[in-house]
Write a protein that binds this DNA or RNA. Structure first.
Lengths: 130, 130, 130, 130
DNA sequence: GTGGTCTAGACCACC
DNA sequence: GTGGTCTAGACCACG
């Protein structure tokens, strides 16, 4: 599992880690029951502190996405595809609500917002992995 | 001008201020050339530090939305309606691109994203302030 | 606020801290909106690491009992007396269920368990703070 | 003898083992003088380390519940029914004292505690394994 | 001063 | 080797 981390961002390192690992889990790239990279291995690989990775994993554990087994490591929890999709959808809804409301507050009309959205969806979804 | 500020947020106070003032300017509620509340008045009204308001105004000045006149206060800069709309659209595009890409990374299909978006647009736009 | 901490216990220090602070909050000794001792002050007072106190506070924050205000400190959250009572009751139910089931597994009859319980309740509740 | 073990618990494996074996002994399911499963057999069966089972057995030996015979294995010690009941009662009293005091510290009234207790006793004892 | 983040390094329990 | 806990100490943002 490869991560893209940067300290040139207001997003904390552990947030970058948990966000990207979450994406791997929710997208199914990391299968249920599969072991995550050990805290120490990922810390070494990404050149961050063990504690930073630990904190990211703890956040995901609190969300119920992964769980720790003492002395064994972290593993992807059993979550139905339905559950994963719901989690991702909930997250999307929250984030998009914020964005749309902000744009409305700045005076954009619904049609302008729709337009930007369509443009972006084409851009992002044009990829053949559909 | 009334603002909604809260300590209970990872968003810095000065960010909350600049964001909300920006919305007032871009939406046209604050007309071109109009005076903004003085730093001290807004600080008193919102019970935050003068420094916090100053920082928010400085951020907006850097964006070109407002400008200071020594001894007079801050004023909304002359920006065409077209310019305002472009600014808001640019901001919307950036924010929405991030949201959509994140959802894609989490495995949501284009149609699911579209569905959430439509739902939200109805929710936000259905309001009679249209 | 005085705490009783000991490293001669399998219970982690941060667990001892959060448990005792929780009791102060749920019992109403710390009123809604009231400021908690700062992380640093409590760490100094109890001679533990700042990080240990931080972790205890974070746990309580996750439970919704307290919340942080950047640059201000931690404060007791607004929870109705009803809510507090429910939280305490839920915790009691979980803990007592475990104890009773264990005793049953060890062969004690219901009447024996009742007997121990009555004895303890007298002992603990006999106090005049009732 | 079947045990329920899990990595997903703050309770150490050897604690889970000793706790469950203790229940079997105190409840009389394992009769006085009867041989316990060998360390190696139980380790194999439960897929844990021999050392982990050994530690659990040692803990129970220290409690006087079982004893080792070199080259023969572990055996349930002679304890009167009265003695077993006292052991279980002592354990129950300690555990319940902790629970009740915690609930009192969190502000629950005696009657609330009683209520939860009654509810639980019904729940746990109502079962037909009485 | 406050909390938020990140770090290195230690010891422990468990395997 | 693994995770669990605790520590000291640093820098940042904010007021």
């Amino acid at each position: 599992m490869i991560l893209q981390l940067t300290d040139r961002s207001p997003e904390p390192l552990h947030g970058q880690i948990s966000r990207q690992v979450r994406a791997h889990v929710l997208s199914g790239e990391l299968a249920d029951g599969e072991a995550l990279p050990s805290i120490r291995a990922l810390a070494r690989q990404e050149k961050v502190s063990v504690i930073t990775v630990k904190r990211a994993y703890e956040d995901l554990e609190r969300e119920g996405l992964i769980h720790a087994r003492r002395g064994k490591g972290f593993f992807v929890s059993q979550i139905s595809e339905r559950g994963k999709s719901e989690m991702a959808t909930d997250r999307l809804r929250d984030a998009m609500r914020e964005v749309v409301q902000e744009a409305r507050a700045e005076g954009l009309a619904a049609e302008e917002i729709r337009s930007v959205f369509r443009e972006l969806l084409d851009e992002t979804v044009g990829a053949p992995d559909e």
